[in-house]
């Protein structure tokens, strides 16, 4: 455990150095949050029937998505992507402890640190001026905090997989364009699941990405009630576990390929 905690801490400290990026991200996120809320405002004013999620809940939902934006596994960690693509990953194999867990620890640290740096200021701004409400109830708040751990595990396991996938491609652009869409759409960040058509929503509910946005955010705003949240949280953690296993398998296959065929 110690080596991985140490990697986690190091990656965390590394992320702390990117203050300018965090600052830029903060401004972008506030800007986008405001625009998205305006669009939904127009939609809600002209809606012919009552939308399945209340306007106030939606506003909080949007702010949560901006606060936790950097936590989303949009891509693999940049330094790991470079290693996987160039084949230099083989030098990472010169260590006596598991490569997968070292990478997982890196991604986990990245996914925790980045949103802390730009998320907390947005949290303060949004709750003071832009309509981010508190959790729907004490129970909702507690369950949300718990599912935040789920987001972190899920996000880390997905971003490791994105990096590992680059071991099979020459150019990573294709994968990256795909991952942005897949993560943004199926998690419910682009369009909250309750606003989707029924069949699409059903698909999304069973995909791993829901646990990144839909489950935790809707628990927070009370669109999923505390008594209904056990199953979604179970799905969230279940997927995190399954994707960790998948990532380990993929890495083993990739390592095997490298070891047998050479970079």
């Amino acid at each position: 455990m110690r080596p991985f905690l140490s990697v986690l801490a190091a990656r965390f400290r590394m992320q702390l150095q990117y203050r300018a990026a965090a600052m830029a991200g903060l401004i972008t996120q506030v800007f986008f949050g405001l625009i998205i809320i305006m669009i939904y405002g127009a939609y809600y004013e002209n809606a012919s029937e009552t939308p399945p999620i209340a306007y106030d809940q939606l506003v909080s939902f949007v702010w949560l998505s901006q606060i936790l934006f950097a936590m989303m596994p949009w891509t693999g960690a940049p330094e790991l992507n470079a290693l996987a693509r160039s084949g230099d990953i083989c030098f990472e194999m010169l260590r006596p402890v598991s490569l997968y867990w070292r990478w997982f620890a890196r991604c986990l640290a990245w996914k925790i640190c980045a949103p802390l740096m730009r998320g907390i200021p947005i949290l303060i701004l949004a709750s003071a001026f832009f309509g981010l409400g508190p959790p729907a109830s004490l129970a909702s708040g507690l369950l949300f905090s718990f599912s935040l751990i789920g987001i972190a595990l899920l996000a880390a396991s997905i971003s490791v997989i994105w990096s590992i996938a680059l071991m099979w491609t020459v150019v990573g652009e294709g994968i990256r364009n795909l991952t942005w869409f897949v993560v943004g759409f199926f998690s419910g960040m682009m369009l909250p699941l309750p606003l989707m058509s029924v069949w699409l929503r059903t698909v999304c509910e069973y995909l791993p990405f829901r646990g990144l946005v839909d489950t935790p955010y809707r628990i927070y705003v009370g669109s999923i009630l505390p008594e209904e949240s056990l199953l979604p949280i179970l799905i969230q953690f279940g997927w995190a576990f399954a994707l960790i296993v998948l990532g380990q398998t993929m890495l083993k296959m990739g390592e095997h390929r490298l070891v047998v065929q050479g970079g």
Binding site: S6, V7, A10, F91, V97, R102
Partner: peptide
């Protein structure tokens, strides 16, 4: 192992911290 055109140190961290990381990785 030292590979001339690669680094095993962490680019953004002080040297000392890379050393500490290796300490923990090699127990």
């Amino acid at each position: 192992a030292v590979f001339g055109q690669r680094t095993q140190l962490w680019w953004d961290l002080p040297v000392e911290e890379s050393f500490q990381l290796l300490r923990d990785i090699y127990s």
